[in-house]
Amino acid sequence: MTSFEDMGAVLVAGGSGFLGSNLVARLARDGVGPIRATWRSRQPHDPPAGVEWVQADLRDAAVCERVVQGIDTVFLCAAHTSGAAVITGSPLSHVTPNVLINTLLLEAAHNAGVKRVVFLSTGSVYPDTKGVPVKEEDAFSAPPFDTYFAVGWMKRYTETLCRTYAEKIPKAPMSTVVIRPANVYGPGDKFGWKTSHVTAAQIRKVFERQNPIEVWGTGKDVRDVIFVDDFIEGVVRAARVAKPYLEVNIASGTGITVLDILHKAMEIEGHEAEVYCDPTKPSTVPILLFETGRAQTELGFTAKTSLAEGMERTFAWLRATPQSVWDR
């Protein structure tokens, strides 16, 4: 692989998850490859043809070494994730498995001569900027939100490893890209009550036509939400940037309250319901917005899908997909 424009042989670690499955589908449509994708406990649903699927527990160093053989570009999408209740009640559940996956796969990739690793990080690395949209350089300027203390530092540690492999190993550097996503939603998302993030949770409540509808927290928390196809477009563009190291926000660049997300879903589905907020239930942070100038300048990327269109496509996917696939 002489240019990052040509990804060569690709590994999507975590290829059956929400982001990984959408990425695999996009790369296959683009004719990238060959493509290898891993899954651990959840088999891929409706996978594209021509992809090599490998069941793999990436917490095992030997398994990581095996799956990166012959690979040029790795997309590190594998992660143990969940919703607000788990983040606040059992924060270490996000730490140990992810530290193992990230460190072992990065080491295996470097030892195997992989040219580039694209790491899907998180917006939880950012500190509280008091409602000002976060820039990439803000990430290490102060501690993460206390709610995100464990997961934020875990992701910061992996980001530091990515930079180390790219810039601090003079004889054999490995190019890396760090993606910091906003709240991604869309087809393939997790809609289980214990695992869903904020947008998926509101969509499911409306899809099931609940009445009344309960919103955790005050409903006034502000989030940047981005449709999955837009997000994957940003990831693919970032993977092709000709820089040894890049960190970039992939977001819509706009904010919306949780209540407004819910009301938009109700409007689209034509569902009228009583809505009440329970401030005693877990929520995460009051406001997290993203500055998107670097994505626009470096990647030529701007999110294109409106919330209404994204939700319509998500509701259509839910109607066409067995509940066993999305209720997880």
Rank of each mutant, 00 (worst) to 15 (best):
L19H: 09
F18E: 00
K168F: 13
R42W: 09
R42P: 03
G186K: 04
T73I: 05
A320F: 04
H271P: 01
T257L: 05
D229G: 05
G270W: 01
P91K: 03
R209S: 00
F231P: 04
A85R: 14
V215Y: 00
I179E: 01
T302V: 15
T257G: 04
L289M: 11
H263Q: 15
W317M: 01
L27N: 09
V132K: 14
N183S: 14
A273T: 00
K115T: 13
E167Y: 09
S90H: 15
V206Y: 00
V99K: 14
I261T: 12
V95S: 09
N102G: 15
Q69M: 11
I87V: 15
R163S: 04
V184N: 00
T73N: 03
S90A: 15
Y276A: 02
G15Y: 08
A25P: 04
L307P: 06
A182P: 00
I261D: 07
D72I: 07
L11I: 03
F191S: 02
D72A: 08
A112F: 11
I179H: 02
S196G: 09
E137S: 15
A201V: 09
V117T: 15
Q296R: 15
S21A: 14
A49M: 10
Y126G: 05
G219F: 04
E272R: 12
R328F: 13
L288H: 11
S306M: 10
I203A: 13
R26S: 13
V117G: 08
D138K: 06
R223E: 10
R294V: 13
F4Q: 04
I261Y: 06
P181G: 08
M311R: 06
L288W: 08
L307H: 11
I268Q: 08
Y148Q: 07
V117D: 07
W317S: 03
L120S: 14
R163I: 00
T96D: 13
G300Q: 00
I101W: 01
G310M: 05
D128A: 06
K281Q: 14
G31N: 07
C162E: 03
D46L: 12
D30M: 13
R40G: 02
F140K: 11
A308E: 15
E167W: 09
T2C: 02
V12D: 02
L289Y: 08
S16Q: 10
S90N: 15
K130W: 10
H271V: 01
